[in-house]
Design a protein around this nucleic acid. Structure first.
Lengths: 158, 158
DNA sequence: GTTGCTGAGTCTGTCAATCAGACCTAGCCT
DNA sequence: AGGCTAGGTCTGATTGACAGACTCAGCAAC
């Protein structure tokens, strides 16, 4: 039984495009830092262990792609420097980060648990991602999700 | 104001561990194929354009890490071959994939829309990820999520 | 029984990316 | 003038990506 997916082109796949940005070894780790409020080059470098060059490249790429913006700041007694902050596009990566965190926590954590959780600002309870359909049903099991061609789907040329 | 995150070690961070698996350029694209029902080496290769060697490496890594399993199958008139299927660990990546898809669709899609959507098996409506806290509140805006140290958090040694 | 086909790889050589470590630089402070 | 600091850049060695050719097992047709 030939999978239906074989009939469709993937050249405009948005997952592949997203992974051009997110799918480099350190990108999401850098973003984790920014989400955690760490915004400065050296703090990130010390915490993540990413080589300077790579960190500089990643930050530049993320700024260029519109995920981060570079903002000047000045502490008293210091010259002006720059820090990195999330744009709206960057903030919208929260669900991705929380999803990855949830999966990592389940399968890759040390016995004592995850070093990081995320909480709801208003009530303090832990936040998780959920799959939910547009009619409001919760999608409990992974097998209840089925892929299908979207509005931008194109038939394969070959 | 020094970010609180600087006091905590990140050496056991589950996001970093997850990204050791997912954070390679083609991993999630390969998984997209498997979720779409494409399970065979050559189909994946033709659809994704990943070089053979890289695809072979990725598949082997995903099998080794427990995300995929390699299953024998035999079509009539052919010798036995292998296909790749999701383990439970792999199936639990659905939320990650849907989150990445949602973000990519919002910021990186062509004008006509995304080539791929995911639907609820029972009702056919489109499925999205949502952030929701344990008390059941929907977390509407990214800014309503705050990170905090989890049970496995360790103070920094330095 | 030799030739050819197919799916699923491996081998090889080139080129780009990663990494560690040293070096640089602008402005501030002494 | 000399030193400190944040945020880089430069250099050379190692690793990974990639394209294209080659391999290999089993089936099938001649």
């Amino acid at each position: 039984m030939r999978p239906a997916a074989l009939d469709w082109s993937v050249e405009n796949c948005t997952i592949a495009r997203a992974m051009e940005i997110l799918g480099e070894r350190w990108t999401l780790v850098v973003l984790r830092e920014v989400f955690n409020g760490v915004r400065r080059f050296d703090d990130m470098r010390v915490r993540t262990g990413v080589p300077r060059q790579v960190l500089a490249n990643r930050l530049a790429m993320l700024v260029e792609r519109g995920v981060l913006r570079r903002e000047p700041y000045r502490e008293p007694g210091s010259r002006e420097r720059h820090e990195y902050r999330l744009t709206e596009m960057g903030l919208d990566l929260w669900p991705v980060l929380v999803a990855v965190l949830g999966w990592g926590d389940r399968y890759l954590a040390d016995p004592e648990g995850s070093p990081l959780t995320v909480a709801h600002r208003d009530c303090g309870a832990e936040v998780r991602v959920e799959l939910r359909c547009e009619r409001g049903h919760e999608v409990a099991r992974p097998r209840d999700v089925v892929p299908r061609p979207g509005p931008g789907a194109r038939r394969r040329a070959d």
